[in-house]
Write a protein that binds this DNA or RNA. Structure first.
Lengths: 333, 333
DNA sequence: TTGTACGCGTTATCAA
DNA sequence: TTGATAACGCGTACAA
């Protein structure tokens, strides 16, 4: 029926070349112990038959898949795309392929993902997902899958982690704001279910204000540009100033735009800071001051660490990125 | 050495449960012909031993991997992320896992990717990559890998395609611009190596202008916000008006910002249209008029078609999305 | 209903 | 330098 090639096997190559399949295997794997003539002969028949080794069978025999599992949330954020890009770069360089496991904001499903990671026989995994807690991760690890966890401090025999901290820089930013005479009341824009990172930032925000004895606000909104914009149009109909700390660029932009569209001036009346800055912070007007971590670098580092972990060469199982503050036009300082 | 579990095999489960491995296999695959008691017994031992079937061995035995290969360019664009998101949604729903093959702007490497797709034994592939031409795609297809090609018209025994057309709507937009008294000279912003999509748009742009006998410009720039911004700051120091058609939001935003920062008014002096609009067109100010295709929908559709193709149930091997025009504030019409 | 035995396409060990 | 042959972990006719 099909006029498509059926899969050519190593055995057929061997037969066509008049050698044993062991010899073909040696040629494929570029091992020595093959005379140039036989090698030539085999390589030609491989070419002629269009033979491609089955990664599946190879993996089964060697117990190595050259496959890395990537667990990420489904949220379509720029910084996740950046992370993925960094991972991809290194993966390509090192000859690994990536298998994507995408989780929703749903714990039972996240657990199902873990099952899949295990059955899929990846050589290692990078987990960037707030739904999964330490137990879950240790579970996947108990199946001997070397794992790098991003944005969560974990360590174990085959677990390393890459974390990033916004806390230091956030605290400093807040403190120096008041020290330098900042008069606006600061508000932390709380987004429901936005994960650990935002949670830690909020904690830092609260603690810093408590320590300084300053008043502050926490404002709830949704993790969506349009919702946030709508909420803040409402907000700015009653409040005419404030310093707002938002999760990411879209949210910050929504606040900024709402302020501008309400006739307020940024940064004179309203200041906005984005916690997870991306290139879009630089495109909107006024440009948005932000805390920054190069997520592509995080991805690269995670991948390098994972490869070391797989090769049992990872000495330092923990790495931390510190965010930097990038002043743009949405804040005075 | 390791206190981690070694991989538990089906054989060990069988032994522990006092049945044959065939029975365990039946339980796993939820086939009938197993008494509830044995099923129970087996399931308990599976639980107790923490057995997870090896997807590898399963795949080798069944010749099905439940693995879909996704070939995408490395460029870190929002619309690619959107596409991926649509694909992911359906994959999750249908129980497939995605393996990512990322290509650079480099043809030999893209060919290497094809090799990998074949050796990786995916059940099917979705290809969204301008580097690969029809021959390459037919090659992967000749290895019996069902394939959906995005943004390229192809058909074959196991190949379908999802295309999107900006041409109609672009032509209409241009024509009605002039019909309604648009006076600015239109310029197509050409980006080197940006692929077929932009190429087709440029062609439509040229043809429409030729047909109408209108003067036009083609301006070259790089596919980068900052480069484009710089180029257009330069440009607007000499030219004080124009209608610019740009590839994607970042480029359009760069032009718009350069215009604004040069003291020009958008859309009074300068109009800008983004060809591949994303949510960011709505966040920048003025908001950018754009042509739109919901890439997540494209992704979903591709995935659905691919699954049908795998099951030999795909009747219509071609599907086309038409872009829509979304007027925002960067154009008068 | 259950078990036996073979096949899936490789790698790897050991003889030859 | 080569070639049998046994794993790798599972599915599945076929037999019991």
């Amino acid at each position: 029926m099909d006029n498509l090639k059926e899969r050519v096997t190593i055995y057929q190559v061997a037969q066509a070349a008049g050698v044993s399949l062991a010899t073909v295997s040696r040629v494929i794997n570029k091992q020595g112990n093959v005379t140039p003539e036989t090698r030539d002969k085999v390589e030609r028949t491989i070419e002629r038959l269009g033979y491609k080794p089955s990664g599946l069978a190879q993996a089964l025999a060697t117990n190595r898949t050259t496959n890395i599992g990537i667990v990420i949330p489904s949220a379509n954020y720029v910084y996740i795309a950046n992370l993925l890009n960094g991972i991809t770069d290194v993966a390509k360089e090192k000859g690994f392929v990536l298998t994507l496991f995408v989780t929703s904001h749903n714990r039972t499903e996240a657990l199902g993902v873990i099952e899949k990671v295990i059955t899929t026989h990846v050589d290692g995994a990078i987990i960037f997902d707030d739904e999964l807690d330490l137990n879950d991760i240790m579970k996947i690890n108990s199946y001997s899958v070397p794992t790098i966890v991003v944005n969560n401090k974990v360590q174990g025999e085959k677990v390393g982690c890459v974390t990033f901290s916004y806390n230091e820089i956030l605290r400093k930013t807040i403190e120096s704001y008041y020290e330098n005479g900042g008069k606006k009341q600061m508000a932390f824009v709380h987004v429901h279910d936005a994960g650990r990172l935002l949670g830690r930032c909020e904690k830092t925000f609260l603690e810093t204000h408590e320590k300084l004895g300053r008043l502050y606000k926490v404002i709830n909104t949704d993790d969506s540009y349009s919702h946030t914009y709508r909420d803040f149009m409402e907000y700015f109909s009653k409040n005419k100033s404030g310093y707002f700390i938002a999760y990411r660029d879209s949210i910050a932009a929504a606040i900024e735009n709402a302020a501008t569209d309400s006739g307020l001036k940024v940064p004179e009346d309203v200041e906005v800071l984005s916690l997870v800055g991306t290139k879009y912070a630089n495109i909107v007007r006024p440009t948005i001051s932000s805390l920054n971590i190069d997520m592509a670098e995080v991805g690269k580092r995670s991948m390098y660490m994972l490869i070391d972990l797989i090769n049992r060469e990872l000495t330092d199982k923990s790495y931390s990125f510190e965010a930097t503050f990038l002043k743009r036009d949405s804040t005075n300082q």
